[in-house]
Design a binder for these strands. Structure first.
Lengths: 218, 218
DNA sequence: ACGTCCGTCAACACCCTGTCGAGATCGCTC
DNA sequence: GAGCGATCTCGACAGGGTGTTGACGGACGT
C-alpha cells in the first residue's frame, strides 16, 4: 500500500519527506532499468524480478515502489506524452503563417519524440489491449490532441483556407489514428511500413489533402 | 505432437483419416468456444482450462488439438481474413465505372466483415504485440491488401483520374493503416472514436482526397 | 484376438505473481 | 546518544497458469 506511489498523473516521487531520499533513487533505477530492458526484449518477456534485479533490489521490494509491472510502464508513458505535448507547443496557433510548414512541424515533432522513445511506445501498444490504465491514459492524451487538431481545422475553414467537408472531429480522429498506426508499423518494422525517413512527408500529404484538398495550401 | 494440427494456412482438420471423426468436432468446439468467450472477456482473461471445459474436454486434451491458446486465435484470424478477402472480391478492377462507389464498396465490405467478428479482431490486436505468429499472419494479409490498393492507385493515375503524388505504395500503407486503427477504436469503443454508422464515410472521404484530391472523382 | 493408432486425462514440474510478517535503517527529537 | 516512528527491505509462502509425461481405454483393420 505505502503512500501515493502510483504516480502517473503528477510529478512522481511526491508524498514523501521533502528532500531526496534513497527511495527516489530506487524508483528511478526501476524506471531506467525498464526502459533499458525494453530496448532488448518485449514487455511480456520482462519479469518483475528482472526489473528488481536490474535496480539492485529484491522482488518484494519492487512492490514497495510500484504496484505492478504495468504501473512502471504507465509512468514511462506519462513522461513520453508530456514530452510530446511540450514539443508540439503552440504550432497550431500559427497555421495561417504557412499552413504546410506548420503542420509539418507538428507531425515532425511528434515523430521525433515517439522515435526517441520507441521502446516505450511499442510496449504501450503491446499492453493497451490488456491494461485498462494504459488504455485510459492513452485515450485521454489522444483526446486532447484530437481536440486541438479539430479546433485547428475549424479555424482553417473559417478563414477560408480549408473547404468544408467531414465533421472536423471525425477528420481529426481519422488523421491522428493514421499517424499512430503508421508510426507503430515504422518503429516496429514488421509488416508493410513506410520508411522512417519518409514517414513524416507521407503523413503530411494525407493530412493536407484531407484538410485542404491540396498539398500546397495557401 | 500429433499431426499437423496447427492449421492456419490451409483447410483445418486435414491430415487424419478421410471421414468426419470425433476429433474434428472437438476442434470445432474449441474454436466456437473461443469466439463465444471472446465476446464476454478479454483474450488474456481466458485460460486454456476455460477453452477446454467449454469444449467438454480436459486441459491436457486441449493440447492434442492446439499447441497453445494463441494457436486457436490464429486459426480464428485466418478464417476472418479469408472471409474479408472473399468479400472484397474484385471491386478494385472496376474503379473506372464509378470510383467513389467502388471505393466505398470496398471499405464497406471490410467494415462489415470485421464488424461481424469484432471479438476476434480485438483479440488479435491485443496479442499482436506479444505473438509473432499473429503478427506475421496479419503482416502477410495486410501486405496483400496494400499491394492491391497500390495497383489500383497506379491504374487510376495512369488513366488520368487521379493526379500524381506520393509513392502509391506509401499512400496505400497510410490509408490501410488508418482504416485498421480507426476500426479498432470504433469497435473497442474506448478513446476518441468515430461513430459506427459514420465510419465508412469518414474513411472513404480521406481515401478519396488522398488519392484524387476531391471527394467526387470522375 | 491382436497390434496400432487416435483420443483422453491425472499428476507433475515449473515459472511468475502478489502478500505477509519480521526485521533493518534512516531522520528526527529531547 | 537514546529512543521512536516512518521508511525501506527481503525470506518465505500461497495461488494460479502453463506445458509435459506416462499410462490407460477404445475403434479399426487383419
Amino acid at each position: 500500500m505505502a503512500t501515493a506511489r502510483t504516480s502517473a498523473g503528477a510529478a512522481p516521487g511526491r508524498g514523501r519527506r521533502a528532500g531526496r531520499s534513497a527511495g527516489d533513487d530506487r524508483e528511478l533505477a526501476i524506471l531506467t532499468t525498464a526502459e533499458r530492458l525494453l530496448r532488448q526484449r518485449t514487455f511480456a518477456e520482462i519479469s518483475i524480478d528482472d526489473l528488481a534485479r536490474g535496480a539492485g533490489i529484491s522482488r518484494p521490494t519492487f512492490y514497495f515502489y510500484f504496484p505492478s509491472k504495468d504501473a512502471v510502464l504507465l509512468t514511462l508513458l506519462d513522461r513520453v506524452t508530456e514530452e510530446a505535448d511540450a514539443a508540439a507547443g503552440d504550432v497550431l496557433d500559427h497555421l495561417a503563417e504557412d499552413p504546410r510548414a506548420r503542420w509539418r512541424e507538428l507531425i515532425s515533432r511528434f515523430h521525433a519524440t515517439f522515435g526517441g522513445h520507441r521502446a516505450v511506445v511499442l510496449a504501450c501498444a503491446e499492453v493497451r489491449g490488456t491494461n485498462v490504465e494504459v488504455r485510459r491514459l492513452w485515450a485521454r492524451v489522444l483526446e486532447r490532441w484530437v481536440q486541438a487538431v479539430e479546433a485547428a481545422i475549424v479555424a482553417e475553414r473559417r478563414r477560408g483556407a480549408a473547404p468544408p467537408g467531414l465533421p472536423a472531429r471525425d477528420l481529426a480522429i481519422a488523421l491522428n489514428s493514421m499517424n499512430e498506426r503508421v508510426w507503430y508499423a515504422t518503429f516496429a518494422g514488421d509488416g508493410p511500413a513506410v520508411a522512417e525517413r519518409d514517414v513524416v512527408d507521407v503523413l503530411l500529404d494525407v493530412w493536407l489533402t484531407g484538410i485542404y484538398r491540396t498539398t500546397s495550401p495557401g
